[in-house]
Each structure stands twice: as C-alpha cells, then as structure tokens.
Design a protein around this nucleic acid. Structure first.
Lengths: 133, 133
DNA sequence: CTCCCGGATGAGAACGGTTTTCGTTTATAC
DNA sequence: GTATAAACGAAAACCGTTCTCATCCGGGAG
C-alpha cells in the first residue's frame, strides 16, 4: 500500500495523516494481522523510525475510535490491534500466544441470546482457544 | 455451602483446605458469579478476614489449575474469576464492566472451524458485548 | 513569507493489576 | 517433639499502559 493510499485512507476516516501515523499505518494496515503495541514499536525500530511509545498508543486508540483497527483482548498480558475491522472470529494459541483469524465466516451462532434487560448489542465474538499438539 | 462441604470439595480437587482457601472458596464458589481479585479481597475484608492479596492470587491460580474456577479475560484492566467451570458463554457490558453468563446453552456454533495445523482444541468461548440503552 | 495557534509528539514519570521475593508461620510426617 | 515442607503475607518488583507537560510542527491568516 503506497503512502498516498494510506494518506487517503486515514483522511477518509477523519484522521489527519501525520508522518508518524502514516508510518504506523504502513506497518499495521498493510495486511490482515494482529500486533501488540510492542510489536509495532519493534517493527518501527527495524525500519529506523523513531516514533515514540506514547505516539504508538495514541495512534492506536485514535485508529480504533475511527474504525481503522479493532482492539482484541484475549491475552491478559497485552492488547492486540487487529487490522481487520469487519466482524470476524479468532483462534488463540495458548502455547504460543499467537492470535489468528478464523477464515471461514460460516462460523456463526445458532441463536442470538436474549440480551440482558436495558442493553443493546455491541458485538459478538467467538474465541477458539487451541494448544499445540 | 457449609464449611465442611467446601473442605470436601477442595480435597476432591486435590487442594489442601487451609483456612484462607476455605474463606475464599466460601465467597467465590458459593454461587455462579464473576469476581476480580480486588472484589474478592473486598468481600474478605467485609467479613473481617485478613487474607492477603498474595494469597488471593495464589489461591485463584491454584483453583484455576485444579478446575475449581475459570479465568475470564474480557476486560483488559482485570481478570475475572468465574465460579462456573462447565463451558458456557458471556455477556460483557462495556458501559458498566459487568460480566454475566449467557443463560441458554443452546448458544453454540453452527460449525466448528478447521483448527490451525498442529493444534488441538482447548475451548470455545462466545462473548456478546452489550452496552446500556 | 511570516506569524500564530492548536494539534501532535515524545521523554519520562505515574499508575495499577499482577507477580515475585523471602522471612515467618503453620501443617504434616515420623 | 523435632524435622521438613507447604502456605502465608508484607512489601517490592514488574510491566503494559496512561498521563504529564514541554516542545515541535504545519496550515491558515494576514
């Protein structure tokens, strides 16, 4: 994805395309993946970028708010940021800590349960925990 | 649940029934509920108990390992301990932070997805996020 | 082109839930 | 009763995340 594609995409979501945000977006939004803040920071460093930790967190929260990424809370030790924003489900490997998408979206609920009194639906997520053979 | 019922239950799961563990079990295992470590500590204090934070965490990990409780990771800010150990699903109210069981266990998957290469199934969890109307 | 202003950035401190450390206490074995 | 191990707990350490606040930057006004 070219820099100008990214810039356009950020703007379309109401996000000003600063150099740091474009660098982060280039890494995370490039393809379907799940990265923690540290992993993003690590990749930035690999490319010689000096974006700060504070900016990575600020940016991820902004992206999440604007619908460019989703936060995934599966591993209690860290938050993953998911570049796929449409509803989908996950595998979580409890041995490796790896998170991956469940490819076939036929995976759905048989019935949607009756929601608790006074609440509206936000999202439905299926998590399939697996371990190494 | 009486003290001796609890003692018996702990022993059945291979857990030595120390006074502190029995006190914690009395609070959490009494009925289906989801409590954080702080909430357990708070209730202990209400009853005049002086069990330490370290022991609450040690005990919860031991209970989880021995199948007396399940850890639920939904709220990135804290771990909930669930006294219901059979497979079931959850509502999470993103406004209040409350976690509750989905009562009707007809909620299941239409298909179990093909697991990633080299992995075995551990568990399947459905999380329905709701917000206040 | 320059000035101004508000948003963005970043270094480091603060925060808070969880884990670890390690000395003391308690239970168990003999 | 003594030895040995397990459990407990106070406090420090840990670590991912958030906050603070001084500085930087960029776009619009003039």
């Amino acid at each position: 994805m070219s820099r100008s594609d990214i810039t356009r995409r950020l703007k379309r979501h109401g996000v000003a395309a600063t150099p740091q945000r474009v660098e982060i977006a280039k890494i995370l939004l490039d393809r379907p993946q799940h990265l923690s803040a540290d992993q993003i920071l690590e990749r930035l460093r690999q490319e010689g970028s000096a974006v700060s930790k504070a900016t990575v967190y600020n940016t991820m929260h902004l992206f999440a708010e604007k619908g460019l990424v989703r936060e995934v809370n599966v591993d209690p030790s860290r938050t993953f940021f998911d570049s796929t924003t449409r509803p989908h489900h996950h595998f979580f490997n409890i041995d490796t800590g790896e998170l991956s998408d469940i490819p076939d979206d036929h995976v759905g609920l048989q019935h949607l349960p009756l929601l608790p009194e006074g609440t509206d639906l936000d999202s439905v997520e299926v998590l399939v925990r697996v371990r190494n053979k």
